[in-house]
């Protein structure tokens, strides 16, 4: 009928997740071509297919067509319905991979989302569940390669996102961290904490690093340990970093890696750390029709591609200016945009 044709066209397997998110949020049909077309093993990977399945379950009326070779998909988005959903994530990617797009979608669902994801909770590719959100209930942990972890993600729904105005970085006032060890000696987490404190203690006293040891069934199927750190500034800016165990590396070294990554992240500046830039920018775009501002460090390549895609989808571009124009040395940038006034159309008034 008067249904619009495919209005969004992308190619390549990169940036797969947030492109799906943008399509679903904007309601515009999406076509992605040339997904690993030149690869030895062309087409979608199992985790991508699994993500598509998950999105299909979270939404109502979504039509996903995957080409025979799997190198192109067509997504006709439906409405985000939410509700209670359980999903088994494949072991090729961690839960963080699936969680990230859903965090972007969940506030705009029809019903509050109650999502249970099973799989690997922490690995070196995706954000671990410790960092991703505070509304997470981590029931079981699962380290790669066999996973066996389980998390629960509860998200309320919103009518409209408020305009973000986050320019003051503030100063770091507290550092929190979780050192967890599953199916290895519980001493490992203490060793990681020790090592991390050796660096961080010089800065502030308010450092709490929790040792989180899981036993029995809750500790998943494979051994592993990791340290996740979170630095919070006086204005609420968060910087995170984490390091995951690799075979043959002492827990102290893992901890040092995480700690240094955190310091590097802090040094980079901005109110938002690099891994969450996209989420914050998306929420700014979706904010009410006022100017939202946020101070960030330099954008990551993902963020840059995201900015381009967002312009394609919502027709909004960001104004990016040096945060401190009087001080040319700082690399901090001020991202400001005029929100689209996105209203949660899925919200029911009945």
């Amino acid at each position: 009928m008067a249904q619009a044709g495919v209005s969004l066209k992308f190619s390549g397997h990169q940036h797969f997740r947030y492109r799906l998110v943008l399509s679903i949020l904007s309601g515009k049909p999406l076509r992605i071509d040339r997904i690993r077309a030149d690869d030895k093993d062309p087409g979608l990977r199992d985790f991508e297919a699994s993500l598509l399945r998950l999105l299909e379950r979270v939404t109502n009326g979504t039509v996903i067509e995957i080409s025979y070779t799997g190198t192109s998909i067509l997504l006709k988005p439906g409405v985000i319905s939410g509700g209670s959903i359980t999903h088994d994530c494949p072991l090729s990617r961690a839960i963080g991979y699936f969680l990230e797009p859903l965090i972007m979608l969940a506030p705009f669902a029809k019903k509050p989302l109650d999502l249970t994801l099973r799989g690997i909770t922490t690995d070196d590719r995706d954000l671990s569940v410790d960092i991703t959100g505070s509304s997470l209930g981590s029931k079981k942990r699962g380290a790669p390669p066999l996973g066996g972890g389980e998390i629960q993600f509860l998200c309320p729904i919103v009518k409209q996102v408020a305009t973000l105005n986050f320019v003051e970085m503030g100063k770091i006032k507290r550092i929190r961290g979780i050192a967890h060890a599953v199916r290895v000696s519980p001493q490992f987490s203490n060793r990681m904490i020790e090592a991390s404190r050796s660096i961080l203690n010089r800065y502030i006293p308010d450092i709490y690093l929790y040792s989180d040891v899981y036993k029995g069934d809750d500790s998943g199927k494979s051994p592993g340990y990791a340290l996740s750190l979170l630095a919070e500034s006086s204005t609420g800016a968060l910087h995170s970093a984490e390091a995951v165990s690799t075979p043959g590396v002492a827990p102290e070294d893992t901890a040092l890696l995480a700690t240094r990554a955190l310091l590097a992240e802090v040094k980079r500046g901005g109110c938002v750390d690099r891994s969450h830039q996209i989420l914050v920018l998306l929420m700014m775009i979706l904010g009410s029709e006022d100017i939202g501002r946020c101070r960030m460090g330099e954008p990551s390549p993902r963020t840059i591609q995201f900015l381009r895609d967002v312009r394609e989808v919502f027709g909004t571009s960001f104004k990016i200016s040096p945060a401190n124009s009087s001080d040319p040395s700082s690399t901090d940038l001020l991202f400001s945009c005029f929100g689209t006034g996105y209203v949660n159309t899925n919200r029911s008034l009945m």
């Binding site: 397997h13 990169q14 940036h15 963080g96 991979y97 070196d124 590719r125 890696l257 690099r274 993902r302």
Partner: peptide
């Protein structure tokens, strides 16, 4: 090329710390 949010930690980069 993995679609990763987390950037890989390069030990050499962090060695300066």
């Amino acid at each position: 090329v993995w679609d990763m949010t987390k950037e890989p930690l390069v030990e050499a980069d962090l060695a300066q710390w």
